[in-house]
Each structure stands twice: as C-alpha cells, then as structure tokens.
Design a binder for these strands. Structure first.
Lengths: 391, 391
DNA sequence: GGCATTTGTTGGTCGCTGCGACGAATGTGC
DNA sequence: GCACATTCGTCGCAGCGACCAACAAATGCC
C-alpha cells in the first residue's frame, strides 16, 4: 500500500518525467511540462533533481527556428544501463542496454552442447566483469535475465525450462550471489512483450497479447491495462499449452491437443525441404512456396492457431494480437485465412476492432525487454539512484 | 494520467480510510490509523472530512474494557447507497444496496415472458422512483446493472444477451436518460466476481478466476492484481466459449466444442429426472445420486471442465479458482476427480497451490456486485460526494 | 530597433502530512 | 481512594512539494 505522503507525489512526478523521455525521446523542458501536465517551475525542479541523480543530461540551448527563448534539451543519460542476459540452448548473450533502449555492448558466446545453469552463471558473470562497465562510464545497478521457460519471478527460480533441460534451478539467487547485484529473471516471451509494448507493435495499446513461435515451442504473454500480466507467481501467458484440438498428440509438457503440439515450425520446415534456417530465410522460403502441400499445412496450422487466438479474444478481449517468429510467417502467408478461421472461434463483438499484426522488434527484442525489466524499479523510484550503486 | 499534486495524496488517503472500513468493518480512529499506516492527526482530519461528506458516522466513545482513553467508533454511513438492477429471463430485481454491502430494499418483479429492454428500463425506473429512496434518507448517486451477456462497459450498450434475446440494446443510455443518474452496466459474472472478491471466496486473493454455471450458460470473470480484468471493452472473461473438445456440438454463439456446449446443467438435470430445480435442491439431489449414469456424466463433465480450467491455470496463473452455480456442484460431487483431471491439463508448476473452491455468496451476489460497481467512482474519489447528489 | 513570443527563474502561497506536546479518559495497583 | 501508566484526541508547528505570478532572458518578426 502507498504511504500517502508528499514524497509519493515527488516520486510519481519524477517517474512521469522519466517515462516521457523514454517514450517520446529527448525534448525540451517546456515540452516535458506540456506532456506531463506539470507546471514549468515544477518541471524545472524535477529535471534538476534527475540531473543531479545522473539520470538525465541537459544540453545547451537549441534554437529550433521558432520564436521565443530557446529551450534547453533534456535527454536520458547514456550511462545509465542494465545488464541483459539471455541463455539459449546453443548460446549465451550478455549485453549492456541503456535506459533509452540502446544496446551499447553485446557479447555472444556459442555452446556446442546445452549449457547447465552453473555454466551460464559463471560465464555470464565472467563476461559482465570483463566488459569493464564501470571503467567505460556505465552505471549499472541491476541484471535482467530472459529464460525460455517457467520462472518464479519472486526469486528467479527457473521452474521448468525444457529446452535448456533445467528444472528447479535457482538462477536468480546464484547470479545475485556472485555479482552482488539485484537480478530479475523472467520468461522470455513476457520480456519480449514488454519490449514490444514500449518500442514495438504494442506502443500505445493497453490491452494486447503477444504470441511468439520459436524453433521448439510457442511462448506467450499478456499485457492488460498497460501492465504485464504475471499472475500469482509469474507463470501467466502460457498460451502454447491451450487446447486447439481433440487430438492425442502431446506437447513438451505432456498435455494433448495443444497449440504447441499441433502448430510447429518443424512441420513447415520439413515441407520446405530444409533442416535449419534462420527466421528471415524461413519466412522468405515459406511465402515463396505456394505448393498444395504447403498451402494445406499452413491452412491447417492457421485453423488451429485460430482456436487458440479465439480463446485469447474471448477470455482477454485484447485490442491487438502480436505474432512473432514463425507465427508471424503463418499470418503473412495468408492474413485473410487466419482472420476467417478466427471469426469462427471468437465472439463477434470481442473480435471487432482487433488487429492481428506481426512483431516489430528484431534480434535485440529480448535484451531490451530483460534490461528494462531490471530498470523498472529505478524508473518507478528515480530517487533510489542515490543509494543504489554498482558494487 | 495522475495530476501529481497534493490533492491526489488527499484523495488516496480518503480512499484508503473508506476501503479499510469497507473491508474490515467499523473500527476506532486509532485502529484506522494503524491499519492504513497514517498518523493519528492525519486520520482525524480524514475522518472529519468523510463525516462532513456524510460518508461515515462517528459514534460516541466505546469502552471496550481496555486501558486508555476510549475511542470513538467510525462506521460507514448507512444512508450512502446505490441502486442495483438485475434483469433476467423471467424476472427483474431492483434493490438499494449500501456502501457496507447490505441490501436495504429489494423488489422482485416476475415476468411471464422474456422482457424487452424498453420494458426493463421502464419498470426499473418506475420501481426506483416508487421506492422513495430520498424520503427514506438514502443518498443514491448511481445505478449498477448486471446483465447476463456481453456489455460494452463504456456506455452500457448490451451487445449480445442471448438468453434475454437482446442485441445491441443501449440499456445504459436509456436508463441514464430516464433517471438522470450515472449508470454502470456490466456482465453479471464480472459483477459476481467483484462481490466474491470483496466479501466472498476471493477475499485477500489478488489473482483468481470466477466461473459460474447457470441454467442456460457459463459465465466467467478474471480478477488480476486485485482488479477486475475487463479487457479493451469489458468483454473479457468469457470462459464458457473456450474449447474443451474436438466435438461438433456448438454453444449459444455457434462455436463448437466449447465448455458451454459440453458442460451443461440440463444434462445432469435430465439424468436426475427433473425439469426445473432451484440450485439448492439440484445440488442436494445430485450429491445424493451416486448411480452409474450420473457418476459417468459428472466424470465426463469434470474432465471437460478441467480442460477449460487448465487453460485458465496456464494462461492466467491464478491463486484460486472460484466455482459457482452447478459448477460448484460438479466440484462438490467429487473434488478429487476434478483435481485429478485438471492435473492432466495444467502445467504442474502453475497448478501448485491453486485452490479450487465454491463461491460463498448467495442470492444477493449480483446485487452487491452491481451496486459496488456503481459506487466505485465514489470510493475512488470520496470528495466527489459534495457535488454528486441525487437528482 | 521595438515588439510579440516563448522559456527559465525566483519568491510567495497553499495544501497536506508528520511530529511533538498536552489534555482527556480510562484501567491498575497500592 | 489516589497516583500512575496507558491510550486516544487535539492543537500548533515544521517540512515538503506543487502551483502561480511576475520578471528576466533570448529569440524571430516587422
């Protein structure tokens, strides 16, 4: 519960200014005031505070050709950042991502076998130390980790990451112990949705559902009222395990007839006569192939995807559905087909006005999402920057 | 967006005091201070304001046998209330419900045929006028309406209420025009969930899903983070239309293999050899009948309910599932059976610690929910009581 | 060069909460 | 029966933060 004091107001206003800069980029104090609805003198005080905390920088007066006294530009400090860590089956990526969502450093390490949790923790901490963040002037106060699996957000316990073959691995604790930094671990799809919300297909949309089709599974996340819906422990959004057919085919966790069991990239890949393919090549190849076999498979997968999307529409009433990975390819192959299939499974009124679009962000999606998750506490309480320091 | 002024703090604190009284009943000022974490003098000022607005009453000092100066009791004013309106296929109920969730007046009018929207509006407004609320000292500033169907919450347009045979009926506008009061129309299951959240099976639970089995359909609602999840337009929660089988049987809106199509009270009723039955008799009769036919039907319906609940658990990660109507009977018949069936459809980690319980509130559930929905703006901004008056 | 326009700055005011001190009203123990 | 501790209400004061109005600064326009 809120404390109900005037300090709350200050915190809220500092956050409002910071958010405005994050959403709409650098701007003048006057614009900041208009955008946030605060008084000029209030904004002056807020910006001065934020500059003192090192969260924003003020540039000299910029004459933009208009009348009136030129205004000083305010921009997010380029040194405030977080570490982003992303373990996959065949690689580990570590990055430094700024408050402005710019990826400043990025190190990718390939594995020849599936890494253990301990290996990931060691390698990640080694890489982070070797990056010399402090020497390069970065001020990093936390770590965000994107894991392909079920994560208990409270303490970063990885409950079940089938592709990594991790079960009940205390990743958050281990990483926090070795780095002495706060660690925020979350499901990869949720962090992807967070990034799309702020910088991609979810901008300005307060209710949307994100569904991502990866090489070995389907992840999902829900944004409701502008906030990521985590549920009781952070497991919400597992739309890959919703039923789409009465078939007995089971998915990776043993549930039958689910979206993840029925709609697979593998099937399409084999029909295209390929083994491995990155996403771009896959989409190009798929869209170019209009053979009967491929068309039939796409149509079937679309119908089954539509069943899951029907559930989404009926249960969550989103304004938009964002599809990533090969699900976006499935959409691109025949947008009308998917929409038609969906209209047979969704309440007409709930389906009205629902956009179905492709995800917009590319390779750095999860790094941005993870880092921003880690930076969230700072944004929500900018004054905490005083005490929270690297080390 | 918040304005960011000290008045916000005041509003928030007034709301905190009011909510404490709503949740935990009458108490002393000192207790109020401890519970809300505010200073004694602040609470004094807040209570004084609320009393001035007529929202709370202060009683004389109560000596509770303990040492120290006896404290004055603070209680919600019994005169602050809202109208609750509940149209059904065979009846219309109008009630006056207080801020303390007490149903003070209740009028039920039976129909011999399905009423039209115009009839309901006329009858409801006539009944409300005849109740003489103002003469009886009630201060009523709004109307809450519970409708069995899809409602656009923005303006109270009833999009689709199949059982009432209403489509695109502007109920909210019509009722507001004739009564000159703000009207809040919402789906009945959502309002039921709201009541259960505050006074029933959802107390103290911030993530739960409510599923209600009625005579002619299944309604649902989601509470996430303590807030009702409405979605973009208020259509969210339609769990009756989620898939549970590959069967071709369609539900009332024409979607095949859904929970509402497969799990019906009718089937059980006919197996019990009855036509009509109120809920209590139905549950008694069902639980008493352990014949093979009934047991088999219950088991099948449990399995299909479990598929829908699996979706709920995987997608929303609730702490609790609250079942009402005949779905509660289905649970009571064989609690273990339902749980077992669910464990085959839900992610183990997400299912951990999930309670499956029966709804606690009885006949007045929807009236309380509707009225509290209507009172919500007042609770969120108690100072608005000054200007908002009946008439 | 004067004028309108826009922005930055400063001092004053107002509203709200917290704090400390004091009085009021009770129970407790001798 | 009386002093004491305990708890609650009240009052004045201080601190914080936002708004407001007035003024200064820096530009474009005529």
């Amino acid at each position: 519960m809120r404390k109900g004091t005037s300090e709350d107001v200050r915190r809220e206003n500092l956050t409002a200014v910071l958010r405005a800069l994050m959403v709409d980029g650098p701007m003048s104090r006057a614009e900041l005031g208009r955008l946030t609805g605060r008084n000029r003198s209030t904004v002056a005080s807020l910006v001065s505070d934020l500059a003192g905390l090192g969260l924003v920088d003020e540039h000299g007066p910029i004459s933009d050709g208009t009348v009136g006294r030129p205004s000083h530009g305010v921009a997010l400090s380029s040194s405030v950042a977080a570490f982003a860590v992303h373990p996959e089956v065949d690689a580990l990526t570590v990055a430094i991502v700024g408050l402005d969502a710019q990826v400043r450093r990025k190190v990718r390490h390939e594995f020849d076998r599936i890494p253990s949790m301990v290996e990931v923790v060691h390698l990640a901490s080694t890489v982070m130390a070797a990056m010399g963040a402090e020497e390069s002037g970065f001020r990093i106060s936390s770590i965000g980790v994107a894991v392909p699996g079920l994560v208990r957000t409270l303490d970063g316990l990885v409950r079940n990451a089938p592709h990594l073959q991790w079960w009940e691995e205390p990743l958050g604790r281990a990483l926090a112990d070795i780095t002495s930094l706060p660690v925020h671990v979350a499901n990869d799809a949720q962090l992807g949705a967070l990034a799309e919300r702020d910088y991609g297909a979810g901008r300005g949309v307060s209710h949307f559902v994100y569904l991502n089709g990866g090489a070995s599974g389907i992840g999902g996340a829900i944004v409701a009222g502008g906030e990521l819906l985590g549920g009781a422990h952070g497991y919400a959004g597992e739309l890959g395990h919703t039923p789409v057919s009465g078939s007995a085919v089971v998915d990776t966790v043993g549930i039958s007839g689910t979206l993840e069991a029925e709609v697979t990239r593998e099937e399409l890949l084999s029909l295209l006569g390929a083994d491995h393919m990155d996403h771009e090549s896959f989409e190009v190849a798929l869209l170019a192939n209009r053979s009967e076999a491929v068309a039939a498979a796409v149509a079937r997968q679309q119908r089954q995807l539509a069943v899951a999307l029907g559930t989404v529409v009926n249960v969550l009433n989103p304004e938009r559905i964002v599809l990533g990975g090969f699900l976006a390819s499935l959409l691109a192959y025949d947008p009308e087909g998917l929409r038609t299939a969906l209209s047979a499974r969704a309440l007409g009124q709930a389906l009205e006005g629902v956009d179905i679009v492709s995800a917009q962000l590319g390779a750095n999606l999860l790094l941005v999402g993870a880092a921003h998750r880690a930076l969230e506490p700072l944004v929500d309480d900018p004054a905490s920057m005083t005490t929270t320091r690297t080390g």
